[in-house]
Design a binder for these strands. Structure first.
Lengths: 257, 257
DNA sequence: GCCACTTACTGGCTTAAGCCAGTTGGTTAA
DNA sequence: TTAACCAACTGGCTTAAGCCAGTAAGTGGC
């Protein structure tokens, strides 16, 4: 079936190392031979060995640490997201976000940092969806960082029109750090339903990769929600950037062999 | 704020080219200077210029064609997926899948190939969810390739227990190529509701990249649905692998500057 | 016992040169 | 006119050598 054409040296070394990792020759956390040693072993230039390791790093199989070595990455699959459809109902019944509900179900501790709450000029989509002025500082932005068992898993940015926020809706929750912003909305008489949801896969921006500690080559999920209140008026837009290697989806799913 | 440390040459060249693309010096479809020319222009080795182009290719900004050159990639944003929540209701009302509904709304033509229908050993998750034997060929697999205006956008794999399929449910639709498999289920008296949904972002496998024509560095969305019938019994598992650059999500969303 | 320093490793990135392979367009022979 | 060919490009990938920067462990002085 497959033509099995001769692999170029860098790919061949990468393939060999991949197998060695798969069959347990190198376990999670183990250090791979150094570039110079690999080059000598496979009778090739250091560049070539380096390229091989680069391929594995891009696949997220190994972590490369400058000055130290390349280590087999731990395959963390902690949070299983999106396990239930109709999460609006779930949210209303439990008062928990899908993330929080799932994390708690799995016995993970949850922590939410709120590194920034500020009045900003809205990104184009946000302005459009909330029907606010795209030129002035017409929205309040609240940034959340979510951790499960102290592992960063998700960044959330919630945008609310300034008139609605009145400087308090988002800020009032800041100190508690519970991040249960929907509960706060309810207290203030806003019953929010998420009516629109878009999702994409993309590579993280450098800042995001730093916060989420994603290895090179590992993409993130980028989800945008729009929430309307009980009068059908757009109330908030939330953008989540999630680590994709923590969602628990079994990648072998689509493998046919 | 940003330290702005001196960029190494390869990054510097990449950055320069990135800007040139952003400001329209190089338009969509334009050919970038060859590696050798770039190297001469920036007084560096060909390897360095090559690395710069590689960076842009990994970011999906350019397509590199062996023997021809590097071309500025067309930024296609055709299908906006997941525009509506509660797609179960939409499905029941319109009889269309979200993909099909959205594509039609945007005036795109839709084509579905069915390259494979076969009886297979189920992947682990499928066996678990459908409660079938994970060791024998207990499921029928139907592979769909979806095209919008002849651009490949999605791969779908539907799994149904062999006893239910009886060799006919999936096969009967094969020739028509409409891919409206839910309609066929309904005809046969199975009213299916999707109760579970998991999603991940990941890099495509080589075969997938080939089918979907994704450039290097562009991830795919990997979605798994489980459908139950009117008696609450798991009936089918569907796995979609989708191009993420066609979902229409504006990446500028989370950019703060 | 502790801390600072040294040293021998590690990866990061570059230059320079070369051969191979795919593409393209012009030229030549039928 | 057409088809085959060929030469001059293009990128793909490698070797070899070198310098820089980060890491970690050992060694010394205190």
């Amino acid at each position: 079936m497959s033509t099995q054409r001769e692999l170029p040296p860098s790919r061949r070394i990468a393939e060999t190392l991949r197998r060695a990792i798969a069959d347990g020759t190198y376990q999670e956390g183990d250090k791979l031979p150094s570039e110079r040693v690999l080059a000598a072993t496979y009778n090739s230039a250091r560049n070539t060995a380096r390229e091989a390791i680069n391929i594995l790093a891009t696949e997220g199989l190994v972590d490369v640490r400058h000055g130290s070595g390349a280590y087999v990455r731990r395959q963390v699959r902690m949070i299983r997201l999106g396990a239930e459809r109709y999460s609006e109902r779930t949210r209303r019944e439990t008062g928990l976000s899908p993330f929080r509900a799932e994390a708690l179900k799995q016995g993970k501790t949850v922590r939410v940092d709120v590194p920034d709450i500020s009045r900003v000029i809205p990104p184009a989509i946000v302005a459009e969806r909330l029907a606010v002025d795209p030129e002035s500082k017409s929205v309040v932005q609240r940034v959340n960082h979510y951790y499960a068992d102290d592992v960063p898993v998700q960044i959330g940015i919630t945008y609310i029109p300034w008139e609605i926020a009145e400087g308090s809706v988002l800020a009032s929750e800041a100190k508690t750090g519970t991040g249960s912003i929907y509960a706060r909305f309810a207290e203030l008489g806003h019953q929010i339903t998420r009516v629109r949801e878009e999702i994409a896969a993309r590579m993280p921006r450098p800042e995001e990769a730093q916060i989420l500690r994603t290895p090179p080559g590992v993409p993130v999920l980028d989800v945008v929600h729009t929430g309307i209140d009980q009068h059908g008026k757009p109330f908030e837009v939330t953008n989540f950037i999630m680590r994709s290697d923590l969602t628990g989806l079994d990648y072998s799913m689509a493998v046919e062999d």
